[in-house]
Each structure stands twice: as structure tokens, then as C-alpha cells.
């Protein structure tokens, strides 16, 4: 039950001129699951290590429930970090790995044994206590690493790319396990990932970090609907950016005059909309209708990606494969852009 505050956290590694992390501020409410999202080398893992006390910040502060923890030793912070490659101690059995934190706290061996048993039950590996980590699959190793972290009942749990080493079918299983354990125990959890899908699937909130700076900190859906800038939108798979000017109601650009939703920014900017929000056919209210030519059709199984042209402007659309079965490259395709799905950046 810990509210984590990160204030202007900065890290410049010795010999480096550019900070690896530049004045990052973040509030993580008690019991929430927050993702730090960004490409490799953007300062995510650096942030985690500073929260865990494994790395000293150049400046800034980290507080738990309002109290600065920078002077606390890593072992006294109540923060446990689970690394991407699990790092199970190879010479110990699974049970000894899980019980490690309790052994370091000099708990009674009988109690350790009991709690290790409970923990292995919780991560659904009740019979593997005697094995060596090398005899486990990747997914099992990850669950052991999670059990080893949770057994010490941390105030804050840090996960480094928790799903990225797993097969597609294991990802959802692991996601459910992490979420259910986290909710049950109410542990404030921060995880880092470079994979926006992983962030969206797992987190209550996402902090996007690009080039050592925080771009946006919001609930996951906001990144799709109202990205703060083009880089953010692109990171989340946005493709359509059309320059023009907005008067707050109408966006004037190469596609024509398009009607904007309430609250759109004014002045010169770029119009963006998700490829999956491009609709085929004309709108009932006649708004934002366009005539496009199909430049390419990429069949992706459950969906089809279309490269469209409207005049000289290229657009990306993602549609249901059934909707365009009768169309081919070169055909004319009427489309419309629902007003509520447009966003000016």
C-alpha cells in the first residue's frame, strides 16, 4: 500500500553528456499497475533501478507515501524488482529460490517452507519445488521469479518486460496471473516495456517515455484517441498525419474541409485518426465523406490493411476483410472519417 512519487528524476551516467533520464515526474497511486513504455535505451530500466535503489539518481527524488527513500538501502525499501531474464539463482532449487528473501530475513525454516509452498501454489507450480531452475520452461521460470518477489510482500513491485520473453499463448495467461496477484495483494506495481501492446494489455496507466523524457501519462485508451503529439501517436501505431489548419470546428487540409469534434485545438497542426477508424461507405449525416483509390491491400487474417489515396494524400486504413472482398487494387472506394475519431495535434 504505497503511493509512489517520482519528482524530476534525472540520471546522467558518468562520461555521458546527454542524460539517460531527464527530469521524469510521475505519480503512481497506491495499488495501481503502471507501465513505463518506451523504446530500448529510453531510460525505463534506469528509472526502475533508481526506484529500487540499485542506481543513484543524479538529481530528483523518489518518495513512498511522501517520504523520500533515496537514502534507504535497496534491502530496506520494500521494493522488489523482477528482471526480464528472471535471474533465478541457478545453483538453488526452485523452493530455495522462492524462499530466498525470507531466508535473508532470518525467518524460521518451518515458516519459510510453509510460505514457499503457499506461494508455489499461488503461481500454479506446486510440484516443482525440488527442481533446479534450468529444468523449467521460460514461463515457469518467470512464475518462480514472480513468486520469489511476492513472498517478501513488497510495498512496490517492479517488473522488467514481464511478458516479452513469452510465447503468444503464455502471454495472456501470465498477464492474468500478474493482474490477479497484483489486485489481490494490492501491491503498487510498475513495469517497463518497449511493447505498446504489453503496456495496454497489462497496465491501469501508461507513461510513455521517449528520449529520456516523459511524453504522456494517461489511461491506455487515451494514447489511441488523443495522443499528445505525432511521436506518441506513431509509437501507438498511428499512421495518418495530415497537415493543415484548425479553427476549432473545421480542419482545412489537402483532404478538404473536415468537421472536428468539440474541444479541438486551433491553429496550424496535423490531423490524425486511427487506421481502424476509417469507415467504408458514405456517412448517414454526410459528414467527412471522401472518395479514395485503393493503392494496396494487405491481408492480415482477422483484418485487412488498406493503403488508400485521396488526391495526392496517402491514408492508412484497417478494415474487416469481409467489407472489401469485392474490391481490388485500383478501385475507387468511398470512405468517411467519423467526426468523434478525429484529433488535432
Amino acid at each position: 500500500m504505497t503511493h509512489v512519487s517520482i519528482k524530476e528524476l534525472t540520471k546522467v551516467y558518468p562520461g555521458a553528456t546527454i542524460p539517460s533520464l531527464d527530469r521524469l515526474s510521475l505519480e503512481i497511486p497506491t495499488g495501481e499497475l503502471t507501465a513505463l513504455l518506451g523504446p530500448s535505451g529510453c531510460g525505463k530500466t534506469t528509472t526502475m533501478k533508481m526506484i529500487a535503489g540499485l542506481l543513484e539518481p543524479t538529481s530528483g527524488d523518489v518518495t513512498f507515501d511522501g517520504r523520500s527513500v533515496l537514502r534507504d538501502k535497496p534491502e530496506d525499501r520494500g521494493v522488489v524488482m523482477v528482471f526480464q531474464n528472471y535471474l533465478l539463482f541457478p545453483y538453488m532449487s526452485v523452493a530455495d529460490n522462492v524462499g530466498f528473501g525470507l531466508k535473508m530475513r532470518k525467518k524460521d525454516p518451518a515458516e519459510i517452507k510453509r510460505r514457499v509452498g503457499e506461494m508455489l501454489e499461488l503461481v500454479k507450480l506446486p510440484d516443482l519445488g525440488d527442481r533446479k531452475p534450468s529444468a523449467l520452461s521460460g514461463g515457469q521460470q518467470q512464475r518462480v521469479a514472480l513468486a520469489r518477489a511476492l513472498i517478501v510482500q513488497p510495498n512496490v513491485l517492479l517488473l522488467d518486460e514481464p511478458l516479452s520473453n513469452l510465447d503468444a499463448h503464455l502471454r495472456f495467461e501470465m498477464r492474468d496471473l500478474i493482474r490477479s496477484l497484483q489486485q489481490e495483494m494490492g501491491i503498487t506495481t510498475i513495469f517497463v516495456t518497449h511493447d505498446q501492446e504489453e503496456a495496454v494489455v497489462l497496465a491501469d496507466r501508461v507513461a510513455l517515455i521517449l528520449d529520456g523524457q516523459m511524453k504522456q501519462y494517461d489511461r491506455a485508451d487515451v494514447f489511441y484517441k488523443r495522443p499528445i503529439d505525432e511521436a506518441t501517436a506513431r509509437f501507438f501505431g498511428g499512421h495518418n498525419f495530415i497537415p493543415g489548419t484548425s479553427d476549432g470546428h473545421v480542419f482545412d487540409c489537402a483532404l478538404g474541409k473536415l468537421s472536428l469534434p468539440e474541444g479541438a485545438t486551433t491553429g496550424a497542426g496535423k490531423l490524425t485518426f486511427r487506421p481502424e477508424n476509417v469507415r467504408i461507405g458514405t456517412a448517414a449525416d454526410g459528414q467527412n465523406c471522401l472518395t479514395s483509390t485503393i493503392a494496396d491491400v494487405i491481408y492480415l487474417g482477422t483484418q485487412t490493411r488498406l493503403k488508400l489515396r485521396v488526391g495526392d494524400t496517402a491514408l492508412d486504413a484497417v478494415v474487416n476483410p469481409n467489407e472489401i472482398e469485392s474490391y481490388a487494387v485500383g478501385d475507387t472506394l468511398p470512405i468517411h472519417l467519423p467526426r468523434a475519431t478525429l484529433w488535432v495535434i
Binding site: L54, K73, F83, L87, M104, R105
Partner: peptide
């Protein structure tokens, strides 16, 4: 040094980290 980082974050002191990891 990652194994040692894990041990520290699980609550091992510097000496315990050396001795047990």
C-alpha cells in the same frame, strides 16, 4: 551484477549478497 541486484532487492544485505549469491 544483476544476480546481486536481485538479491539486494529481495532484502539481502551486502554481506548476504556476497555470501549467498
Amino acid at each position: 551484477e544483476d544476480y546481486e541486484s536481485v538479491a539486494r532487492s529481495l532484502g539481502a544485505s551486502k554481506w548476504q549478497t556476497f555470501r549467498y549469491v
